[in-house]
Amino acid sequence: MSRIAPLEPPYEPEIQEQFDRIMRGAPPLMLFRMVASNARAWEKFRAGSLLDRGPLTLREREIVIDRTCALTRCEYEWGVHVATFAKAAQLTEPQIRAIVLDGAQAPCWSPPEQALIATVDALHLRATLNDDEFDTLSAHYDDAKIFEIILLCGFYRTVSYLANGLDLPLEENAARFPK
């Protein structure tokens, strides 16, 4: 169990509707139930969420999220995303391993994907990009995508803080970090 008790069913109709919209009818994740146990936190979490379709492709989005979660050692969120989106994002087993165990120079990544991973790494380590890193990123991605990349890194670092700090138990059907 997590360090803060999650919301338990039956949920208020408004919360159930929000869960249904996010989860498309599947049972809500522990993360959502935990955050929803605090009305203010749930409102802010949903307002800052990047769960909608943005300018990145699903593959680009998942590379950014998965790498952010790997760097923060958030197996909970990484595992949910890999189990839910890796196949649709066409991430191969070697890429799933590399996103956790290797850096941007792993041979399984294309140059634009290497730029994505290097950006996530730089933001994780220094909370900024130097001119060369930004130039490399902008050679592959337009301004709208760059904003989204940076926002995703920050949002999923926050998600990682929540999941790690509250010691959320891993979801039953989620992937596990490679050894």
Rank of each mutant, 00 (worst) to 15 (best):
W42L: 01
W42E: 01
F45G: 00
F45S: 00
A47D: 06
G48V: 00
G48W: 11
S49K: 07
S49G: 14
L51P: 00
G54R: 15
G54W: 10
L56P: 14
L58C: 12
L58T: 08
L58M: 12
E60P: 12
R61M: 02
R61I: 00
E62M: 04
I63F: 12
D66W: 05
D66Q: 10
R67P: 13
R67L: 06
T68D: 01
C69S: 15
C69P: 05
C69W: 05
C69K: 08
C69V: 11
A70I: 03
A70R: 02
L71D: 00
L71K: 00
L71H: 02
C74F: 06
E75C: 04
E75W: 03
Y76D: 13
E77D: 15
W78E: 02
G79A: 06
G79E: 08
V80Q: 13
H81K: 09
H81W: 12
V82E: 06
A83P: 06
T84S: 10
A86Q: 06
K87R: 09
A88V: 04
A88P: 04
A89I: 08
A89T: 11
T92L: 11
T92F: 14
E93D: 11
E93L: 09
E93N: 05
P94N: 12
P94Q: 13
I96A: 03
I96N: 03
R97F: 04
I99A: 03
V100A: 01
A104G: 14
Q105T: 10
Q105S: 13
Q105G: 12
A106Y: 13
A106M: 05
P107M: 03
P107S: 11
C108D: 12
W109V: 01
W109K: 04
W109Q: 03
W109D: 01
W109T: 01
S110V: 06
S110E: 12
P111H: 08
P111I: 00
P112T: 07
E113H: 05
Q114K: 13
L116I: 05
L116P: 03
I117G: 08
A118Y: 04
V120I: 14
D121M: 06
A122R: 08
A122L: 09
A122S: 15
A122E: 11
L123E: 03
H124V: 01
H124Y: 07
H124C: 02
H124I: 00
L125A: 15
L125W: 05
L125M: 10
L125N: 14
L125Y: 07
R126L: 02
R126D: 13
R126M: 02
R126G: 03
A127L: 11
A127N: 11
A127V: 05
T128M: 05
T128A: 09
N130I: 02
D131Y: 04
D131I: 00
D131T: 09
E133W: 09
F134I: 02
F134R: 12
D135L: 12
T136R: 15
T136N: 15
L137K: 01
L137W: 02
S138Q: 15
S138N: 15
S138W: 07
S138H: 14
S138P: 05
A139L: 10
A139K: 10
A139F: 09
A139H: 14
A139V: 10
